[in-house]
Amino acid sequence: MNDLRLSGKRARILADHLLSVPRTIYQRRSLEAALGMFLDLGRKTALHRASTVSASALSRFLNVYTWDTRTCWDSLQHTQWESLLLAARRKRRPRLHLCVDLTSIPKTGQKLPAVRVYNGVHGIHLVVLYAVYGALKFPVGYRVYRGRGTPTPVRLALDLLATVPQPIRRRFDVCVLADSGFESATFLQGVRDEGFEFVVGVRSTRRTDHPGRVTVSDCEHGSWLSLHSWPWEVVTLARCDRGDRVFFSVSSELLSGDGVARKGKRRWAIESFFKESKHQFGLNQFALHTAQGLDRWVLLVCAAFTLTVLCAGGGKTLEEDARLAAQIALPALVVVRLMIEVQRHEEFLRQHGYSVHLSRCKI
């Protein structure tokens, strides 16, 4: 219970820091309404759903107004990293998993920012860094892939890994998890240059340094091998059979094949985040026409998700955790919503002999 209270306190502090960034009361009210909208998982995330400001006001707030988005990102990431450090206190060299992957938001509009075709998907493509330690899991950074002629997803992923702060590097034994889209020698070497271990998926046709054209599909589960294009370190191979398909992954640590497979499965945590962020926290509903609007939309998705994780506990559903996060982090907004709901049904209550009077009590 103490941990839950501490997490709730951190959620309230984070919300206060975020709401203190806009310089005017009008903008702070818009940010509060936006956060409340993203925490309302039971309703579609759309600007007209914000209960205390108009859709046009929220659109101007996200697209036009010059409040300091970078400071909000800094406050969010500081809270995320500090929460991980606090969770690992009194642990001896704990293991932190950093999942990296690319997700696409399908979009058909031509006026939306950063829309490209990649892997057959017409939309916006985000490379995300996701930290997992025990019950804590946070999206700690993202980059937008803008298509041919710009930094590749591998380069963007390495840029994200370079942002991991020094206290995290000193405190944790860090392992990077990625799928076969990040199997290149550039990525593997970049991860090792950062001082991190890795478990990365590889294609079945990936060649090894054995004589002839020996690929990973020719090697046994748990075997140690050197990759043809990256021969500087020995890696451990794992084979995972899933029905009629076989998946392969390699680890920089010389573990058993089953050990590599178990670690590789932890990568699915980021897939769960992608699903929840798109279908419950509103990432898929992005429809703003500016790059600044995209950055602020992703910020609100990540902030709402982080607040929900900080308030999670007791086996509740994600929607219940998000509702609790709104009550803890945005109590004034929740009260206003309740008042609006009561006023909306005032005539119905009067017809049935009820008269409701609202007054604020001193606490």
Rank of each mutant, 00 (worst) to 15 (best):
S30P: 09
C72N: 11
L136V: 03
A50Q: 01
A131N: 04
V121Y: 00
A131Q: 02
T79I: 07
L112N: 04
I25P: 15
D68G: 15
T69P: 10
V132Q: 04
C99Q: 06
L112S: 02
H78V: 05
W67I: 02
A34H: 08
L136H: 06
G141C: 03
A34C: 11
V53S: 05
A11F: 04
A33P: 02
L86H: 15
T52E: 09
Q110V: 11
G42H: 11
A87P: 05
L31P: 06
S20E: 15
L41W: 00
L35V: 12
S104V: 02
P94H: 01
K91P: 13
L129R: 07
H122S: 08
T69L: 13
E32D: 08
V100H: 05
F138C: 04
S83Q: 01
T71E: 15
S54R: 10
E32Q: 10
Y26D: 13
V121F: 05
Q27R: 09
D68M: 08
V115N: 06
V53D: 03
A135T: 13
S56R: 09
V117D: 14
S75W: 09
W81A: 07
Q80N: 13
I13A: 15
S54T: 13
V115C: 07
R70P: 11
A88C: 06
A15F: 03
A34Q: 10
L39I: 10
N63R: 09
L41A: 00
L58I: 00
L85N: 06
S75V: 04
Q27L: 05
V140S: 10
H125G: 01
V117F: 05
S54F: 10
Y142C: 05
K137Y: 10
A88G: 11
Q80G: 09
L112D: 03
A33V: 01
A46R: 14
G120C: 07
H17K: 15
N63V: 05
V21A: 15
H48R: 10
A57W: 12
Y26R: 14
T24S: 13
L112Q: 03
G42I: 07
A15N: 02
L14Q: 01
R49E: 07
K91S: 14
S56W: 10
Y26A: 14
V115I: 09
A50D: 00
P139T: 05
D16E: 15
L58W: 00
V100R: 04
R43F: 00
N63E: 08
S51D: 13
A33C: 06
R60T: 12
P113D: 07
V53W: 03
P22D: 02
R116L: 03
K44H: 14
K111V: 09
M37A: 06
R23E: 12
Q77C: 14
W67V: 07
F138N: 09
P113I: 00
